[in-house]
Amino acid sequence: MGIQDMIEGKKQWRAHVARVKALPPDYQIVYKEMQRYLFKVGPTDLAGEDLLPGIVDFFEEGAAAGKGVLQLIGSDVAAFCDDLIKESPTYADVYQKSLNGNPGTDEK
């Protein structure tokens, strides 16, 4: 299971956190707020291996090019997050779907 695996697969998660901590302060702030938002929204893409690490890849590139984080993604950070997960159903969607008929087939 997604986040649990990531956090419990401690080595991987710790490496990820270490990469976040190596980012410039403005990037760290934005990354953390984004992650918090994404945890609340709960897109099923969170369970994939590439959503959060992909953001860090992208941020590392921007930082290396000497850009500020808002210069990179624009000031509407929420819109950026929503774009990232535009095609991903949320856990809430999956749950709601499981309520509307077909109990037990909550797979999309």
């Binding site: 649990q4 953390k32 609340k40 709960g42 749950y95 499981s98 909550d106």
Partner: peptide, 25 residues
């Protein structure tokens, strides 16, 4: 109502992840 537990697990998981991460902060 009407939940088997299984379909709420990922939601609980994400909520717990949020708490863990914020607490660590």
């Amino acid at each position: 109502g009407n939940f088997t537990g299984r379909n709420l697990m990922p939601i609980l998981d994400a909520a717990l992840g949020l708490l863990e991460e914020a607490a660590a902060d």
